[in-house]
Write a protein that binds this DNA or RNA. Structure first.
Lengths: 138, 138
DNA sequence: ATTTGACTTAGACAATGTCCAGGGTAGGAT
DNA sequence: ATCCTACCCTGGACATTGTCTAAGTCAAAT
């Protein structure tokens, strides 16, 4: 985590209380928080922090590749601090819970050239959907 | 297309001018329209149609399984009339263009039981990302 | 200690989607 | 053909999420 702060400083990030707090929140719980959830937790540590700053900081972390944006539905984007180990997501269709998963196989290799339509394909996201144990039993 | 209308009528759908227009728009161009784009095209055919009705109708079509919802980013959801042939999506990271693709392999089988965390997994979406030819050359 | 430009703030704004009360109508019943 | 009624549509208010801006603040280089 101080790793993260070090990396960011090394990249010319100006270190501010706000940015430190956002980074701490993301690193603290390895769950997939929405921007508003990050904001709520950040406010608990630094009451004056503004919503705009949280959005800005999350955007910068995404640009820097330190955090991944996950869009599983039309609600809020979620932020995944686990950016350095490739993985995919398993989402509960009912409650929205997300788990990181590591399928076997390589989906990138499964897209033949004839199915690429001239695109430069650089990334694949695989999203598994289903019901989590508690939603399935309800 | 009248297939579609027939199927819907058979399921007890009350047929109205508004619903017919929405179905026609979706069936007319097999592209991935946003709700607002559907609304714009619907208004061209039936000027009084309201936004709420378009949203409602799209939602019903999704529930009935006639249309798929595609969420590739935090902008608008898109609606895919190609609900009856399984496929995945290739998205341009710059301009948002979407193509249907058919990768080989079976990603569902690539998720071992140990990675399912007790979820009842029912579906997989694979989203390839890259740059479309025109965005890549710009 | 000074300086400077990057950072933060509050709040207005934008985009998308949802909800509601009231009026309208499709399609079955007569 | 007409009537009824449950279902549908409308317009607009509202909610959620995210973006932008102008002005003030502060980290860090000097």
């Amino acid at each position: 985590m101080s790793d993260l702060l070090e990396r960011l400083r090394g990249r010319g990030w100006r270190m501010t209380a706000q940015r430190r707090v956002v980074a701490e929140v993301l690193d603290g719980e390895h769950v997939h928080l929405t921007a508003d959830e990050v904001h709520a937790r950040a406010v608990a540590k630094l009451p004056e922090i503004s919503r705009a700053t949280v959005y800005n900081t999350l955007g910068e972390l995404v640009t820097l590749g330190e955090v991944l944006e996950v869009t599983t539905d039309k609600r809020a984007k979620r932020y995944d601090p686990n950016a350095h180990r490739p993985h995919h997501h398993l989402v509960c269709a009912r409650c929205g819970a997300i788990r990181d998963v590591h399928p076997t196989g390589n989906p990138l290799a499964d897209l033949p050239d004839t199915e690429r339509f001239g695109f430069t394909v650089s990334d694949v996201e695989v999203t598994y959907r289903g019901l989590c144990p508690s939603c399935a039993s309800a």
